[in-house]
Simulated assay, not measured.
Amino acid sequence: MKLKDKRIVITGASAGIGLALSKRLIKSGARVACVARNKKAMEKQFGNRAVIISCDISDPVQLDAMFKKAENLLGGIDIFIANAGFAYYGTIGKPDWEKDKKIFLTNVVSPIYSLQRLSEGRKTPLIFMVTISGLGKMVLPGFALYNSTKFALDGFVRTYRMEKPKNIKIIPVYPVSTVTKFFNKAGGKDTPVPYPRQSTEFVAWCMESGLKTGVRSVYTSVIFLLRCMISRVFPIDLFAQGFERIRLKRWRCKQDLVMKGH
């Protein structure tokens, strides 16, 4: 499928994967609405080459307003890319209802609601791409909250495929660790980054290629794809989990020292 003149909305467009993918989509000739909270960052990156919409996707009022604006300015939506995500690393910590709610609203509820809104009464084709993460397929210590949201989203996609109408195509994306500020936002500058690691440009290329070819799912790492197949039979994640458990303990020690003022 050619992307030229396709009306595309992408969330999380101000940085990381979303920024790299937005640039590729604009270059392909698509009509793109870039969505994120940081409007100034998007204006600096895209200028008048894209529709810029400031929106906190965890807020249903802002999300509804974003859809109305995007649909009016683009004349409709052919492809929606739910890419924005709430970064979190560390132990689950003290009881914090608002934090727990925020991560699930951003990572799970918002993409599902967006799909519901776009598909309600729809007769024309829609491609709905959603960035899930490799952590929707495996568990690592330090990511309990983040893991749980991604497993929920992966479960939704797998089940929705058995219920969806024929005019809706859903494409989940499973990137591994990307070289961005994501992990710094998740747990600070000392946050351990799991392996393997990839550039945002490569992940964006994989996602763009997935849209063009109409694949069922996008795995950005062949190694991770093989792991997903083998892990159904053998417990190959035990080494990685043990390694990350050690890194989590070291990270917690550093955080304790910071809290004590050392």
Results as ranks from 00 to 15, higher is better:
P165N: 11
L126P: 01
V130W: 13
R122L: 04
Y160V: 00
V157C: 11
L153G: 05
V139M: 14
P125T: 13
M129V: 06
V130G: 06
G134A: 08
E163T: 08
L135Q: 12
A152W: 09
I132P: 00
K123H: 11
E163A: 05
S148W: 04
K166L: 11
P141W: 03
Y146L: 00
R158L: 15
P141V: 07
P172Q: 07
K169C: 10
L118G: 03
I127V: 10
M129W: 09
Y160W: 10
F151Y: 14
P165F: 07
K137Q: 14
N147P: 03
P141T: 05
K123L: 14
I170D: 04
R158Q: 15
P125I: 12
S119F: 11
L126A: 02
L135T: 07
L135S: 03
M129R: 09
G121T: 01
Y146Q: 00
P125M: 10
I132V: 12
F151I: 12
E120L: 06
F151T: 12
I132F: 01
N167G: 12
I170L: 09
K169P: 03
P165Y: 06
I170G: 00
G134P: 02
T159D: 14
P141I: 08
G142P: 04
A152M: 14
P141K: 05
L135K: 05
T124E: 15
L118A: 03
A152T: 13
E120C: 05
M138H: 09
L140S: 00
G155Y: 13
R161V: 15
E163Y: 12
R122Y: 05
I170Y: 01
L140M: 11
F151A: 10
L145I: 08
G136K: 04
F143L: 14
V130Q: 12
E120N: 11
R161D: 15
T149R: 09
T131W: 06
K137R: 15
